[in-house]
Design a protein around this nucleic acid. Structure first.
Length: 403
DNA sequence: GTCAATTCACATGAAAGAGACCACGGTCTAGTG
DNA sequence: CTAGACCGTGGTCTCTTTCATGTGAATTGACGA
């Protein structure tokens, strides 16, 4: 019987009119044909890259801006166009786009170079070769024919934070090793202060030109949302004021357009699921909660066991103790739990780092304070929304096999 | 009451180790003609 | 004779540990008013 019901469910599902016509236009991977409110920046990028078409190496470029300010789209758009024109005129120009934040792809020097080399059709093992060997393979691949290579390194600040600025130094020296080809680097960074923290020698050569993307304001986000909504939603399926409110949400969060699009998409999905013909404000509110909830749950269930034990210790301690928690207290409880769960406890040094990482992830709030005579420690409180806590606890209890 | 020194409880840094993966070259083994 | 199995070496990467150094304000204690 269950089978029939399920069949019916799918039949219904198929018949049901979705309010989406095509969800992809709200996704992050989609590059629109026209990019609103970034005309100036795109023009500048184009100016800088234009020498490529005359087979001259353009200046290296650094692009800054907060998340969701259109850096990546603008750069991708410009490079796409230039590649097209180059292809038409038979100019050997190659653009390599690389997101350094993606784990396991480009978060170390070795992996970065290996990945680029793979783009040139070289097979590089994920590990086992000396790094300079990989460099050599890369040089050979690039220099095998005359060409201009544009290397786009997205979220380059993440890479440097993890792997040090030696990479940048090596990147600036790539051209010295090449006889036929030239490489031009475009770095994209979320962190405005990033360039100040790197080796000055590297700084000057890598950042010959730079470009700052200001955040979008609420009006601009509205226009962007309207544009995308037209493409992805059935006409008339967006309730009054929804776009405006989405834009307001996002503008509050330093003008993050990506977040706004996410919000609208999830709100649409929620509306879809409850058979509503329109996205209403209430879906938007739900969507905001859902995005956060999904994010937290995703982190909690995928992070290593030690993180989970530490988090569980915090959650338990929070119940018995009102007010802020301190590193020492948490560490004591944590050690007990380790015995309980059958995990060997880490040193306090490491737990301290884990607490720092949990803070970065936004699962806890940790602030370093000094209690004067009574030492210096982190003041820690849970940052998981109230309505998500039971779910998180459930996940931890089952994955850790707590009694 | 004021001021500098002290002290606590970790934070923060640097370096190095352990263990997992992997490539490569050399050696051994079994199967084939 | 040769393909494949099986080492040993040398490399990267991640997670940890060890050792060292740093730090901010409550507390303390000396000092002078």
């Amino acid at each position: 019987m269950v089978k029939d019901q399920l069949g019916e469910f799918f039949e219904d599902f198929l018949k049901k009119e979705s309010i989406f016509t095509n969800k992809n236009f709200l996704g992050t991977s989609y590059t629109p044909d026209t990019i609103l409110h970034r005309e100036d920046q795109i023009k500048l990028i184009a100016d800088i890259l234009a020498p490529l078409l005359k087979m001259e190496k353009p200046s290296n470029l650094f692009v800054y801006g907060k998340t969701g300010t259109g850096k990546t789209v603008s750069v991708k758009y410009t490079t796409d166009q230039i590649e097209k024109v180059a292809a038409k005129h038979n100019k050997p120009i190659k653009v390599c786009y690389l997101n350094c934040k993606l784990k396991k792809i480009a978060d170390t020097e070795y992996r970065l170079i290996a990945h680029i080399a793979r783009m040139f059709g070289k097979a590089i093992p994920p590990t086992g070769l000396p790094t300079d060997e990989v460099y050599n393979i890369f040089y050979k691949a690039v220099d095998s024919e005359k060409q201009l290579v544009v290397l786009v390194l997205d979220e380059i600040d993440q890479l440097i934070k993890k792997a040090g600025d030696e990479i940048l130094y090596n990147l600036t020296r790539i051209n010295e090793q090449l006889s036929l080809s030239q490489v031009c680097v475009i770095g994209i960074s979320n962190d405005l202060m990033f360039i100040d923290n790197i080796d000055p020698r590297v700084k000057s050569s890598l950042s010959e030109e730079d470009l700052v993307f200001p955040p979008y304001n609420a009006i601009q986000i509205q226009e962007i949302l309207h544009e995308r909504a037209k493409l992805s939603f059935r006409p008339g399926s967006i309730g009054a004021g929804v776009i405006e409110k989405t834009a307001a949400f996002a503008a509050r969060e330093h003008g993050d357009a990506r977040r706004a699009l996410d919000l609208l998409r999830v709100a649409g999905e929620l509306a879809d699921r409850e058979d509503s013909s329109k996205v209403e404000i209430k879906h938007l509110d739900d969507a905001e909660g859902k995005i956060e909830r999904d994010r937290v749950i995703d982190i909690v269930s995928t992070y290593p066991k030690q993180f989970q034990v530490v988090l569980y210790a915090i959650m338990v301690l929070r119940k018995t103790q009102k007010g802020a928690l301190f590193t020492g207290e948490i560490y004591e409880i944590y050690k007990d739990f380790c015995k309980n769960v059958g995990v060997s406890p880490l040193t306090q040094r490491r737990v301290s780092d884990i607490l720092g990482e949990l803070d970065m992830l936004g699962l806890i709030n940790a602030k370093v304070i000094s209690k004067g005579r009574y030492g210096r420690t982190r003041e820690i409180s849970l940052a998981i929304p109230q309505n998500t806590i039971p779910k998180v606890e459930e996940i931890l209890v089952t994955t850790l096999h707590i009694r």
